[in-house]
Amino acid sequence: MTNEGVNKSKRQFLTSALTVVGAVGTGFIAVPFLSQMQPSAKAMAAGAPVDVDLTKMEPGQLIRVAWRGKPVWVLNRTPDVLETLTTLTDKLADPLSNESLQPDYCKNEFRAIKPEIFLAVGLCTHLGCSPTFRPEIAPPDLGDDWKGGFFCPCHGSWFDLAGRVYKGVPAPTNLEIPPHKYVKDTLITVGEDNEEASA
């Protein structure tokens, strides 16, 4: 059998064209399959660090942000609040935060990098309810021992304005402090450690 009547350039063109069409078809099939294996934007955002702008925070103001599906509180504490925190030691279950969850750079009297700015995960360490922010001193429903803090309405746990738990309440430990760092004086990133402070 001879190849005299076969046009080799036409055969090569058809082979190349079919190869390209096959590659494109494979790409159309593979792209949706591979893209479904990527985490969704919502899933990626759930664990992503969150920036908190402090430029408009007033003294005594509490703002809330969401990080990893949890509420995070950021409180701008006044000098009076900082002074009050030093007087509560005998009323607290863990005043030095030895049994509590916080980064090493927040294991101090104020549980903060900078004393005036306090961050905490806004979930009670008893059963995960969200305590309410009660900054007033000695309200009628909480009594004279209340110097301002966070009150859990579910089972009555008390936390001071450093997230430290009072003695004799259901919550076993202080409020959790999330990892965070100052990007600049007025900007905090929640979810990233403060390498300078921990070094």
Rank of each mutant, 00 (worst) to 15 (best):
Asn7Met: 08
Leu142Gln: 02
Thr189Ser: 14
Gly148Leu: 07
Phe133Arg: 05
Pro153Glu: 12
Ile177His: 02
Thr173Ala: 12
Cys152Glu: 04
Phe150Met: 14
Trp67Met: 02
Gly148Asn: 11
Pro139Ser: 01
Pro95Tyr: 04
Gln36Phe: 09
Gly22Leu: 05
Glu4Cys: 03
His180Ile: 09
Leu92Pro: 10
Ala45Arg: 08
Lys56Arg: 13
Ser40Asp: 06
Lys184Ile: 12
Cys129Met: 13
Thr84Tyr: 04
Ala46Thr: 12
Ala41Asn: 11
Tyr105Lys: 02
Pro103Ile: 01
Lys8Gly: 06
Val74Ile: 13
Thr89Ser: 13
Tyr105Pro: 00
Pro139Thr: 02
Thr26Ile: 13
Thr125Ala: 12
Leu85Asp: 08
Asp141Val: 09
Gly27Asn: 09
Cys152Ala: 11
Ile117Ala: 01
Asp53Ile: 03
Phe110Arg: 10
Trp158Asp: 05
Pro39Lys: 04
Val24Cys: 10
Pro170Thr: 10
Phe118Ile: 00
Val169Phe: 05
Pro153Arg: 12
Arg134Ala: 12
Leu54Arg: 02
Val50Pro: 02
Ile117Met: 06
Ser40Leu: 11
Thr189Gly: 04
Thr2Ile: 12
Pro95Gly: 02
Val6Tyr: 07
Leu34Gly: 03
Ser100Trp: 01
Pro170Ile: 08
Leu14Pro: 02
Val190Ser: 01
Arg134Val: 15
Thr15Tyr: 08
Asp104Leu: 11
Arg164Val: 06
Pro103Arg: 03
Leu101Arg: 09
Phe150Glu: 06
Leu34Arg: 08
Lys42Arg: 08
Gly191Trp: 00
Phe28Pro: 00
Gly22Trp: 02
Met44Ile: 13
Thr84His: 06
Thr189Val: 13
Ser40Pro: 07
Leu54Ala: 01
Val52Asn: 01
Leu34Lys: 07
Gln38Thr: 10
Ala199Val: 05
Trp146Gly: 10
Asn7Asp: 15
Pro103Val: 01
Phe151Gly: 04
Ala23Lys: 00
Arg68Gln: 15
Thr19Leu: 09
Arg64Ser: 14
Leu161Gln: 15
Gly191Ile: 04
Pro103Glu: 02
Gly163Ser: 05
Phe33Tyr: 15
Thr125Glu: 09
